[in-house]
Design a protein around this nucleic acid. Sequence first.
DNA 1: GATCAGATATACT
DNA 2: GTATATCTGATCC
Length: 212
Amino acid sequence: MRQFTEAELAVDPVAAAHLLLGAVLESDRPDGTVRVRLTEVEAYRGGDDPASHCYRGKTPRNEVMFGPAGHLYVYFVYGMHHCANVVTLTDGVPGAVLLRAGQVVDGEALARTRRPAARGTTDLARGPAKLTGVLGLDRADNGLDLTDPASPVRLLVGDPVATEDIRSGPRVGVAAAVDVPWRFWIAGDKSVSAYRLGGRRRKQVRTDPFPT
DNA sequence: GATCAGATATACT
DNA sequence: GTATATCTGATCC
């Protein structure tokens, strides 16, 4: 299995999202190797995309998205989870593809020890933070070059997915740009995560402070 | 299936 | 200082 090249990924995030479906992400750690075949991704285009972390310009968190394609962008959300993206487009132009879900194709035993709460095999990486969980990724891995053979985390070209097997729809959990169908997944795959509406979660408001 | 609490880095005022 | 976040796991239908 060969690795992706920077040139292949230096394209629009929507095009890169198609390329990444069926691709394999491999992580080598001291405790072993886990490989995941990607089944669900989302495109984020910086600058003109209000849902992108880059919409309001460069910050210390998002700066790798402004760098060369093929690097890993990992960030921490909701006070307890990590999400991973593959940087696309050229140096200076921000863009990324969020890795939402996949199937563990190698190292399942190790993946299970990293995610003991997972119910079945398909649930191991069924969601963005679950995916980073089984691969053992955190912010220390932010900026890794996935196209470098020496990198502990690498992106491999998988068996191609037929265009007619790809479905698209609105992105999960984003409040902005709901009308843009930039979530892509492999039709019928069991590891595709459940759709949840974006937007602010309604805060629990107590309407009756003195219940009877 | 639906709903909810959880905990904190980050960016903005 | 404050609001928000590319979510998960537990729990209730």
